[in-house]
Write a protein that binds this DNA or RNA. Structure first.
Length: 519
RNA sequence: GGCUCGUUCGUCUAGAGGCCUAGGAUCCCACCCUUUCACGGUGGUGACAUGGGUUCAAAUCCCAUACGAGUCACCA
C-alpha cells in the first residue's frame, strides 16, 4: 500500500485564517489517521516581499495547535524545495515538456484583446472560451515571434473533445464538459507559473495522494485533472470539503467582511472581548486581532484543545452523540466519508462550550501557567515576584472554579491583585448606597476585625449572627459586602473574596465604601 | 449569465427505505441548587425547502421547481 500523503499550501498572508486552519486540520488528520505524511508547502508564487515575516503567524498557528508537519519549511524533506518561489525550474521544465509535446502553446494575444473577446462574449450572452488565434498563425510567423522574443503567455491546450470525471471522496461523482473550459494560462509573460499549474506540478512532485481542500477549489479541478493527464501524472484522490461560513450566514468566512462581523450578534461577543482584553495586554484591539485569525484565539486565552475540538466538529462528526473529542480520538476515528457535504458556520457559542470543557480538565498548575502571563502583561503583577505570587494566583484560580473559561478571564478579577478597585457605579448605588447597608457594613467590619481566625466559616458565622440580630436578610449584607470589597457584582463566593483580599484590606475597603456613601 | 455544489431544530450535526410520532450537542426559556455570577441537575420550545413520482413503506431512491453558495484572471 502506498503511503498517504496530504498537503496544505498556505500563501504567506501574514495571518492564519481560521477556516483555512480547518482545511489544514482535515489534511493533517487524514495523514495521521493513516500513518501518512503531512506536507506544508508555501504558495509564494506571486510578489511576496517578506515571505518570512508573512509566514511566521501561519507556522505559529500550527505550532500552537500542535499540528506538526513532516515535510516543509524549517524541517525540509525529500521532495523540496517547499517554497514555490524556489521551484521555478521545475515549473519551467514542465512547461517545456508540454510545449514540446504540443500540449501547450504560446499565446501572443494581448491582455486587451482577451478582454475584448470576453466582453464580446458577454454581450452576445454566450459563455466565454478563449479564442486560439495564436494557433492559427503560420509556422513562419510563430518562429519569427519566438526569435524576436515577443511576449507571450503559455496556455495549456485543453482537449475539448472529452469529459473530465472524478470520484470525489466527499461529493461523489462529478463531471465536466471539457469543451466548456478555456485554455488556462500556465505561464505568465515573465515566465512565472500560475497557481493551477504550480499546484499540479507540486502535488505530483511531492507525491500527494489525497488533495483535501475547500469546496471553492472544485471548479479548478477539471483543469488540474487535465493537466495531470497531460503531464503523465498519477491523478490524486480529491476530497472537496465544505467551506466554513460566517456565523449566522451562508457565506464563506472572509476577512473582507470583517466590518459586517463586528455587528453580527453571534460574533459580537468575541469582538467585544478583544476590545476589552487586547488593549490591557498591549496587543492592540479587535482591529489587530480578530476572530477570523487563529492568533486571536491564542492571544485571548483559548486552549488548543477547545479550538481543535470545535474545528473538527464543524463539517465532521464521529457519530450521533459524541461531541467532546480529544485530538487523539479524532485521529483515531477521522475518515473522509464522515465529512458532511454542506457548508458549516463557525459557531462561537459551541466553540466556547468546548473551551469550557477543556479548561475544566486542566490542572491548577496549568491554569496558573496560562493565566500568569495575562497578569504580567497587563502590569497587574510583577514578573519578578513569581514565587510570592504563584501561590496566590493559584488561590484566586481555585476560588474562580469554573468561572475561568479563557485564560484572560483572570483579568476580570484584577481587584484581588490591585490596591485600588473600581466600583461598578450602578451596582454600588443599588447594593451599598442603600438604607441600612452602610451601618451594617460598618458593624460587620468591626466584628471581623476582632476575629482570631479569618476563615470562611467564621466570616459566614459572623455575618449570619449579625443579620439575625438586626433582623435583616443575609442577602442585604452579602450583596453590599461583595460590592464594597471587590467593586463587582459577580465573582467567587463572597467569603472567598474576603479571604483573598485579606483581613486588613477588606476592612479598609469596607470603610472606604461606607465613606463614599456618606460623602 | 455559464458551469459546479448544496438544502434535517436558530446553530453544529445523527440519519445509507421500515429502528424516526426524527436522536444528540449548543443556544434560548423555566424550575431546582446557590441570597452574586459560574458550575451542576431537571424539564421545555424547536427541523426533514416545495411539488411530483417509485414503493406495502421515503428524511433516506428518481425527477422537477425554489432557494442558497462557490467559481468563471497573465489571484491564490
Amino acid at each position: 500500500m502506498t503511503t498517504v500523503r496530504t498537503r496544505f499550501a498556505p500563501s504567506p498572508t501574514g495571518y492564519m485564517h481560521i477556516g483555512g486552519m480547518r482545511t489544514a486540520l482535515f489534511n493533517w488528520l487524514w495523514a495521521r489517521h493513516n500513518n501518512g505524511v503531512f506536507v506544508l508547502r508555501v504558495d509564494d508564487t506571486d510578489r511576496q516581499r517578506n515571505v518570512e515575516e508573512a509566514l511566521g503567524p501561519i507556522l505559529q498557528a500550527f505550532k500552537w495547535l500542535n499540528l506538526d508537519w513532516d515535510e516543509g519549511p524549517e524541517v525540509g524533506g525529500p521532495h523540496g524545495p517547499y517554497f514555490q518561489s524556489e521551484r521555478g525550474e521545475l515549473y519551467s521544465a514542465a512547461v517545456e515538456k508540454l510545449l514540446a509535446e504540443g500540449k501547450a502553446y504560446r499565446d501572443y494575444d494581448t491582455p486587451e484583446q482577451i478582454q475584448a473577446d470576453r466582453e464580446a462574449a458577454q454581450k452576445e450572452k454566450r459563455p466565454y472560451i478563449n479564442i486560439r488565434r495564436s494557433l492559427e498563425l503560420p509556422e513562419a510567423t510563430l518562429k519569427q515571434y519566438e526569435e524576436e522574443g515577443r511576449p507571450a503567455v503559455v496556455r495549456f491546450l485543453v482537449p475539448r473533445d472529452q469529459k473530465v470525471e472524478i470520484e470525489d471522496e466527499i461529493r461523489g461523482h462529478v463531471e465536466w464538459d471539457a469543451s466548456l473550459i478555456s485554455d488556462p494560462v500556465i505561464q505568465r509573460t515573465d515566465g512565472t507559473p500560475l497557481y493551477n499549474f504550480a499546484t499540479v506540478v507540486d502535488d505530483a512532485g511531492m507525491k500527494i495522494t489525497h488533495v483535501i481542500r475547500a469546496e471553492e477549489h472544485l471548479s479548478n479541478t477539471p483543469t488540474q485533472v487535465l493537466l495531470h493527464q497531460a503531464l503523465g501524472n498519477e491523478i490524486p484522490t480529491f476530497a472537496h470539503i465544505p467551506f466554513v461560513t460566517a456565523p449566522g450566514t451562508t457565506k464563506k468566512l472572509s476577512k473582507r467582511d470583517l466590518s459586517k462581523y463586528r455587528t453580527n450578534p453571534n460574533f459580537k461577543k468575541m469582538f467585544d472581548r478583544a476590545d476589552q482584553v487586547f488593549p490591557m495586554i498591549g496587543l492592540g484591539s479587535s482591529e489587530t486581532l480578530n476572530p477570523v485569525m487563529v492568533e486571536y484565539y491564542e492571544k485571548i486565552g483559548y486552549l488548543p484543545a477547545g479550538v481543535l475540538n470545535s474545528l473538527a466538529r464543524t463539517g465532521w462528526s464521529l457519530d450521533d452523540k459524541t461531541e467532546i473529542l480529544s485530538l487523539d480520538t479524532v485521529i483515531e476515528h477521522f475518515t473522509l466519508d464522515r465529512v458532511v457535504k454542506n457548508s458549516a458556520a463557525l459557531d462561537p457559542d459551541k466553540l466556547f462550550s468546548f473551551q469550557s470543557h477543556w479548561m475544566s480538565e486542566l490542572s491548577l498548575e496549568e491554569k496558573i501557567d496560562g493565566c500568569t502571563p495575562y497578569l504580567v502583561n497587563a502590569g497587574i503583577i510583577e514578573e519578578t515576584a513569581e514565587n510570592v505570587e504563584h501561590g496566590f494566583i493559584g488561590s484566586v484560580i481555585l476560588s474562580l472554579g469554573d468561572r475561568l473559561k479563557l485564560f484572560s478571564d483572570i483579568l476580570d478579577v484584577a481587584y484581588f491583585f490591585q490596591e485600588d478597585i473600581a466600583y461598578s457605579e450602578k451596582d454600588f448605588n443599588k447594593r451599598v448606597a442603600k438604607e441600612g447597608v452602610p451601618e451594617l457594613l460598618t458593624e460587620y467590619s468591626v466584628r471581623i476585625a476582632e476575629l482570631d481566625e479569618f476563615t470562611v466559616e467564621n466570616l459566614e458565622e459572623t455575618l449570619k449572627t449579625l443579620c439575625e440580630e438586626k433582623e435583616v436578610s443575609t442577602g442585604l449584607l452579602i450583596h453590599g459586602l461583595r460590592i464594597a470589597v471587590t467593586g463587582s457584582p459577580v465573582g467567587p463566593g463572597v467569603y472567598d473574596c474576603l479571604l483573598l483580599v485579606g483581613k486588613d484590606k477588606s476592612i479598609e475597603r469596607i470603610k472606604a465604601a461606607v465613606n463614599k456613601v456618606v460623602t
